[in-house]
Structures are given as structure tokens and as C-alpha cells.
């Protein structure tokens, strides 16, 4: 509708200005009014320096069965499995981790999980969204093949938006290419 209004042209008179050397006339136009922007909010002060999170260590005492800590512990210390560059195929190591995850999920059959797919920064945004979606699906499909009901597992792709390492090096990239089994546990004990 607005566009149509925009296309409404009206005729303007061509103004001929008299002067000694007779330059070409200036063309008349109709009024133009304001485009009033919203005020852009002032930049906030710089954030305080972030302290690197301490790596999570397996507890000496086994975690409470059925807790999130227990899931991570039973998975082998990490709820993520890692992929090769531009790959969504599961490595043997990833399959071992996922077998343990499936085992845990089969023991706690009321727990649901979101499988998050992630990619490293070396790909374009949209391609990486598609690639990470494939990774999440690889994880889900394997867990389902191990007996986890598909209705308990949803997937989401974060592309390269949620790196766990900030570096631009092989180590960081290898960590950022992952599928993360994020179990939904309402009441963790201890």
C-alpha cells in the first residue's frame, strides 16, 4: 500500500531562471519530509574481563545417578561428540560415546534431550547451519538406532554461532565441530 503511495508522482513545473549566461534551468521538485530514526542507544561500557571457565573434571565420588553430572560422567566425561572438517559421519570414538549416552538414556526413559549441532568458523553462515543440522541428525539417528525413542530427542542447529573455543586453530576448530546431547533434567540432586 505504502509502495503504491510512493509511486504517486505529480507533475512539477520546470523553472527557468533568468541570468546573464543562461545556465540550464533547475528542476522543481515537491516537498520531502522527515525520516525520523529511532535513537540508537549509547554503547555500553566494555564488559569486565572474562575468566576462562575451569575444565570440568570427573568427580572422585560418582555423581548422583540420573543427574546431569551423571549423564556427562557416564558419557565418558563429555556430552559432546566431535566431527571431522565438513563431515557429519560419526567416528568410532563418537559411536562409543553415543552408545554410552544411549545406555544412560535407556535407563532414564523419562528424560528427553535436545541434540545441538555445531560447526567451526571455517564455512559460510548458512552452509554451516545446514552442516550442523546434519550433525545433530547423525547423533539423533545413532541414539535412535540404540533404542532411544525418537520422540524423546529433538535437534537444533547452531551453525557456527555457539563455538565452545574462541581460538582460530586446529584444536579450537576440532572442538567446535560437535554434536551436543543436552539432556533436560528438571531436578538435579547435589
Amino acid at each position: 500500500m505504502t509502495l503504491r503511495a510512493i509511486l504517486t508522482f505529480s507533475v512539477a513545473a520546470v523553472l527557468v531562471s533568468a541570468c546573464a549566461t543562461k545556465p540550464e534551468p533547475i528542476q522543481e521538485t515537491t516537498p520531502v519530509a522527515t525520516v525520523q530514526p529511532e535513537v540508537f542507544e549509547a554503547a555500553p561500557p566494555p564488559p569486565p574481563p572474562t575468566v576462562a571457565a575451569q575444565p570440568q573434571r570427573p568427580a572422585f565420588v560418582p555423581p548422583t545417578p540420573g543427574s546431569l553430572q551423571d549423564f556427562v560422567y557416564q558419557s565418558g566425561g563429555d556430552a559432546r561428540v566431535y566431527f571431522g572438517y565438513d563431515q557429519n559421519a560419526l567416528t568410532n570414538e563418537a559411536r562409543d560415546v553415543l552408545r554410552r549416552q544411549a545406555n544412560w538414556l535407556n535407563n532414564y526413559s523419562n528424560v528427553t534431550a535436545v541434540i545441538e549441532g555445531n560447526a567451526d568458523e571455517r564455512g559460510t553462515r548458512e552452509y554451516n547451519l545446514a552442516l550442523a543440522a546434519r550433525r545433530a541428525n547423525s547423533v539423533k539417528a545413532f541414539l535412535v538406532s540404540q533404542g532411544v525413542a525418537p520422540s524423546r530427542l529433538t535437534t537444533v542447529s547452531y551453525g557456527k554461532e555457539r563455538p565452545i573455543e574462541g581460538g582460530s586453530d586446529e584444536f579450537s576448530w576440532s572442538r567446535n565441530r560437535n554434536g551436543h546431547t543436552n539432556v533436560n533434567i528438571q531436578n538435579t540432586i547435589g
Binding site: T2, I6, F9, S10, A12, T29, P31, A33, V35, Q36
Partner: peptide, 17 residues
Amino acid sequence: MTSYVSRKFLSMLIWLG
């Protein structure tokens, strides 16, 4: 935000080339 009125006025700006 741009108001409708202002945009309409702007839209009437003429280019005779």
C-alpha cells in the same frame, strides 16, 4: 521510525531526470 506521512511526502519527490 519513519512516519507514514513523511515517507509519502518523500515519495512525491520528483525526478524529471
